[in-house]
Simulated scan of single mutants.
Amino acid sequence: MDAIGKVAVLGIGVLGSQIAFQVAYSGFEVTAYDIDTKALEEADRRLSGLIGSYEKLVPGATAGKATQARDRIVLTADLAAAVADADLVIEAVPEVLALKQEIYGKISRLAPAGTIFATNSSTLLPSEMKDFTGRPDRFLALHFANQIWRFNTAEVMGTPETDPAVFDRVVAFAKAIGMVPIPLRKEKAGYVLNSLLAPFLSAAANLAAGDYAHPHDVDKVWRIATGAPVGPFQIFDIIGLVTPYNIMSHGDERSQEIAAWLKENYIDKGKLGVATGEGFYSYK
């Protein structure tokens, strides 16, 4: 199969913007889609901010190279235009199954037959979406970690219907954009990373939401006792609180209670994490 050349990223939130920038930084042409003008304006600010982040934090990055990466990203609210000539579509819309299924139903009719679809879903199985893609043999999961330039894993997970050649092509693409591919042998909700991380963050949130200990003290215990550089609530802030909220709000009764606590005490107050300057910690 031919190598991937043109990439579309659907959903330009915190992680979607990072995916688009990393792909462009690696020399690919990128079309990035979001739902309306307001979302695109916010995405433009995030992408422009990543220029400085790359200059400061990525070895070998220069102002010119980072600026060129931004210039290779075209923003659009036209879904048909976004996927019209893409070799690969990376979906990074919010972690809501019905929303993901809906967008695959739309792009299945808009994208060329040969286009590969990949979901960046954190916890949902690709099998839950494959029947909406119109191409289950060319559909799989490609999951990135937040702060993609630093935590550069790319978990690749297919369904029983994914063509092995497509799987290998996406693994090669992950390497081409500077990631370390982590192939999964079969479907697992949460992949490797979130299978380990989600229970850890849930346990921490339960301690704070249950008023057993303040989030900062939970982090302090974890850092001191394990030598870890950050605690669970610092990780929450890096991820952003909206994604954990969306996941927990569809969980069991206790998870929904924790989601309500997150919403009331943080999300409703605009404290969404590092991206907004404040979450469990202030970054202003």
Rank of each mutant, 00 (worst) to 15 (best):
I148F: 01
G273C: 04
K100Q: 03
L110N: 13
M129D: 03
Y281V: 00
V192A: 11
Y283S: 08
T62H: 07
S202T: 14
Y191T: 14
P232K: 08
P229S: 02
E278K: 09
A61I: 05
T62N: 06
G52F: 10
T162C: 04
L79I: 08
P94S: 04
T76Y: 13
S255T: 12
T133A: 08
V274I: 15
L79T: 00
D211C: 14
Q101H: 10
I73M: 06
L140A: 07
P126M: 10
L241R: 02
D44G: 15
K38E: 14
I182E: 07
R150W: 07
A3H: 07
A225P: 06
D168H: 04
S255K: 14
V170T: 00
E187K: 12
A81K: 15
S108C: 08
D252E: 13
R254K: 15
V180S: 09
L50H: 01
I267C: 01
L88M: 06
L196A: 14
V23M: 04
G114I: 04
I35D: 06
G240Y: 01
K65I: 11
T243C: 08
T159D: 02
I238E: 07
S108V: 05
P215R: 03
Y33M: 10
I12K: 09
A113R: 15
K269F: 13
D36P: 07
I12Q: 08
D78G: 10
K56T: 13
D71I: 06
W222Q: 03
I116N: 00
F236M: 02
S108R: 09
E55D: 11
V89Y: 03
A145D: 01
T153S: 06
G178T: 04
L207T: 15
A39P: 01
L50C: 05
R70V: 00
S282L: 10
A204Q: 07
V89N: 02
W222I: 15
R169V: 01
G231C: 11
N146S: 13
A172D: 01
A80S: 15
E257G: 11
F139M: 12
S48M: 10
G64N: 12
A204D: 05
S255A: 15
K263H: 11
F173T: 05
A3S: 09
D217A: 12
L110F: 13
G105L: 03
G270R: 07
H143S: 06
L262A: 05
G16T: 02
F200P: 11
K65L: 11
R169N: 00
A174Y: 03
S282R: 15
E128M: 14
I107Y: 04
S17C: 08
I4Q: 00
I116Q: 02
T67C: 11
F132N: 07
A260F: 03
Q68M: 15
G5D: 13
V170L: 01
L110I: 10
V9L: 10
K175Y: 03
A66V: 05
L241K: 05
V192Q: 11
H216F: 15
G52Q: 14
A205Y: 05
P164C: 01
D36Y: 13
